[in-house]
């Protein structure tokens, strides 16, 4: 057990946790932020993507204890004062989600893409999202949403 302090969605939280607690479990179970989803056991599906210190990571592939002192943004922390982030708005406008399960990870990953590449091509978007599996949308409307968000950011 050890004490870990993180800034999650702008708020400081300190918890005493098991050394082996995954960041995804920390977020879901200790903080009750259930927007971060767990869709596989092998860090393949990307439903659990959050930002740690501004970079997208699969939260099932990190130990919470290993990122002591970091700033974490989850899907719940993306909109500000009730205004949707342009990526969220674009997913809605372009029907970039169906069942919604992969969506939080997909959005968090896409936001990081635009942090790295302000005007990605279709091929670049598709390649970046290789680590996020969606079974519903066939990805086409997700690509459209990311392109629109790139214009609006």
């Amino acid at each position: 057990m050890r004490s870990v302090t993180l800034e999650v969605n702008g708020k400081k939280v300190t918890k005493t946790i098991e050394d082996h607690l995954l960041l995804s479990s920390f977020i879901r179970e200790q903080l009750n932020l259930t927007g971060t989803h767990v869709g596989c056991d092998t860090s393949q599906c990307g439903a659990c993507v959050v930002h740690v210190d501004g970079k997208s990571v699969k939260s099932c592939a990190l130990l919470a204890a290993d990122i002591n002192g970091s700033a974490v943004t989850t899907i719940e922390g993306l909109s500000t004062n009730g205004t949707l982030h342009p990526m969220q708005a674009a997913f809605k406008k372009h029907h970039g989600l169906q069942c919604g399960f992969c969506t939080p990870g997909m959005i968090m990953s896409s936001v990081d893409l635009l942090n790295n590449n302000k005007n990605p091509s279709d091929a670049e978007i598709r390649e970046w999202l290789e680590g996020n599996i969606c079974r519903c949308t066939g990805y086409q409307n997700i690509v459209a949403a990311v392109k629109e968000a790139a214009q609006n950011l």
Binding site: I75, E76, L84, Q88, G100, T103, I107
Partner: peptide, 8 residues
């Protein structure tokens, strides 16, 4: 959609 894109 809103609940899904905001993690709710």
């Amino acid at each position: 959609d809103k609940k899904f894109i905001t993690g709710k």
